[in-house]
Design a protein around this nucleic acid. Structure first.
Lengths: 204, 204
DNA sequence: AAGTATGTATGACGCCGGTCATAGTAGCTC
DNA sequence: GAGCTACTATGACCGGCGTCATACATACTT
């Protein structure tokens, strides 16, 4: 997650995502993105002729892909292959970040939605695509964990919704309480959706 | 919800909440708020000497009180007194708004959190207070509906989180799908938390 | 060596934001 | 009717924003 390896273009997209995550779209300036990415300011108009809107959209898309990949990795590394474990891992990523950095930034996709859904159609669509690219792997993971196909996608939507909402409440409260609460409360409910007779993980 | 009755001060707070809800804090201008409230621009510095931050904080507080009162009214008017009914009513308010107005604004508390949590401590606290003032009535309602005291507050947190997240996803997708999905999936899980033997509503 | 993409570097422009300063206008008391 | 308070009304200021225009440096082609 250093983001300083690749080319300047990627770094700028990455930096944009980070800054949007923390301050929202409106309060994130183009110059600021370039500075944060240690990229030349002139490269902005070179790589993103579509201006800020394009940059924001790419940052959102990047975040969506990142979240999707992350889910796949979580699923592969679950100690106890149950839906609750996946959800705990998703929430745990945010808890861990808070406890590491001491402060909690939000989700760039949510920020872009809040700030742009009503004003920039392309950004709204980028956010929708990002959510779809996140929900997909979650849905697959759930089916792989034994959730009936018909319920996998709705439950994936519920998981992502709860997580997004908990992130916001956690930021407001200045603590990870809501994230832990949501993980604790929703987990068992998700496990209950596993088809009976499915070969669970370690315990039961 | 007309908001044009009371004095100019209240109207401005209300207008601020509405505009923030739609465009986010950053994209909402002070002049715009005054114009929307049909209030004189000079009144801004008169009523809100603390500037934009104060106005935003009051808008957030207003939204929190509104949400809390709303929950109390939902609870009183439930056809089937079950947790799922309350949650459906909460989500239904948003669905209805979308189907009435044709577009979906967000929650002002969420918007303020996303845009200000990292930059304005007072706004972050206002948002936390607003969430608390929303969660309180939900918690009470759940206990009144038969949810054991120990689980009422965590489940209230889960409900609000899911709703907030679903609102964001719905805005991104440009449709109420996520709201309906979340209501459908979470409702039964909430009902299952009702203490056994509790005198439920109509059916079971 | 000339030429041409590709990327970098700045400076300027216009705009709109929040805020300040300063008047002006009721409505009320004494 | 003088004086005070509450509110309204503007205009100006300064700063930051996104964007544009333009010039410069590479690096690869032919």
């Amino acid at each position: 997650m250093t983001g300083s390896g690749k080319g300047p273009r990627e770094r700028m997209v990455f930096s944009a995502a980070q800054l949007i995550r923390r301050d929202g779209v409106g309060a994130t300036g183009m110059r600021e993105v370039a500075a944060h990415a240690r990229a030349p300011r002139g490269s902005l108009q070179h790589y993103f002729p579509g201006g800020k809107e394009q940059l924001v959209n790419e940052a959102v898309a990047w975040a969506g892909r990142y979240a999707g990949r992350r889910v796949a990795r979580f699923t592969a590394g679950l100690a106890e292959p149950r839906p609750s474990g996946l959800f705990a891992a998703m929430a745990g990523q945010w808890i861990e970040e808070y406890e590491t950095t001491g402060s909690l930034a939000g989700c760039p996709v949510a920020a872009a939605t809040v700030d742009c859904a009503a004003s920039a159609a392309s950004t709204r669509e980028a956010a929708a695509a990002a959510f779809a690219g996140w929900r997909g792997p979650v849905t697959e993971a759930l089916t792989g964990l034994g959730v009936p196909a018909a319920r996998a996608e709705p439950l994936a939507t519920l998981m992502i919704s709860s997580l997004e909402g908990a992130i916001i409440m956690a930021r407001a409260e200045g603590g990870v309480g809501p994230l832990k609460t949501v993980a604790r409360e929703l987990g068992p409910l998700l496990d209950a959706a596993v088809a009976p007779g499915h070969a669970g993980g370690a315990g039961a």
